[in-house]
Design a binder for these strands. Sequence first.
DNA 1: AGAGGATCCAGCGCGTATGA
DNA 2: TCATACGCGCTGGATCCTCT
Length: 384
Amino acid sequence: MSYSSIDKIQKVLAQSVFQHTLDKKKAAGRALGTIVEIITYYLIRQWNLSSDVTIELRLPEFGQTQITHNVEFGIHPCIYCQEYEIINPNILPLTSKKLLKNSRDISEVLQDFDLIDNQILSRELLQKNRCLIGRNINENKLALCDLKSYSEQGAVVEIAILKLHPFAIFECKRVGIEEGAKKGPTTIEKAKQGAYVAKHISSLQKIRSVDGKVFGALAKPDGNFEIQPYEKALNQMIYHAPVTDLTNFILTIGIASNHGNWFTSDNPNKELLVLKNSYDWLLFLTDEGLAKFVKELILEPLPKFESVQKAFLASYDSPRSSKRINQFTKVRILRDAHLVLVNYFSKNIRQIESEWFNLLSPQNQPIITLQNQLQTLAQKEWYL
DNA sequence: AGAGGATCCAGCGCGTATGA
DNA sequence: TCATACGCGCTGGATCCTCT
């Protein structure tokens, strides 16, 4: 069976997996939104940023810290990162507490941290991606755990200490095709929600001149502003600024799934313009990319990919009961499905970069420039 | 009045905090 | 470990509003 578009796939999922829900299409759409997030997460990992990520972090607005926003993915300065072997994890579930109990080294690394007890790997072999295990409020640091390998004999975990404040964030959006609609989505509020967050979290703020040119106003510690053309300001921050200038600077990246309905002839919808003008980078996850992911890993998986399908179906294909928990999300995922995804992205990264993503802004830049900017920021000497 | 765009909101999913 | 309450936010259809 061939699926020509994600809209068709959404309908297939609605009929097959989401039959029991009140609104099949809506439920399928919601699940596809989760898949966009998963694709984004495994792309970030494949870009060698896996040690720097947080998921669903509450981020305060710049200069207005009483207002916070949950951001999907934050990329943070990493000031420490080390793998540790846990010889006897003492059966599942593997928790933050058990890490400390079984490794003196980890206890030492985390001695200044308040422990956050989370399950890194549950009895059912569901793992928590980028599991938060500690917080140091005074020094604005987070401790995270990433499960590297697991067997009944032991586990290897990576412990990373990150600065609380990210230097980049990713937000994902999906807008499906409305039944009977000839035009694109008119869900401006979604675009505005994303735009609001993108415009309120960084110390480098976007302002406009009377002729519509965009300038960056950088709030300096001494209370003054440094104003220059936005692109120039952004480049300076990423490539030349010392870390002391980067306090509260955040590069914003939006990922929107595209179904060819964001344009009317050559004119981008207002929704798209809002997003484009708000994020530093706006990428389309293509119809083909999302459809390929769902087809190859969920609808018609090869035997080696079946654990992804299993995790997806176990999460959705029956009425939701209090017992059932989703095992296919960016945060909680079946360990085997995670391993499949890591492998899939590693093998197909070139194709994913070139065929799954289109760049909307900045124009005329390849996706490698984004990767390069993120890595440049990650490699600055943050601890100085 | 009706077309089409803007806004609202139901239903659902998810993460966290809390407390037993 | 489990249950529950709560806050937040996503999707897509329903409804409201504006313009002609």
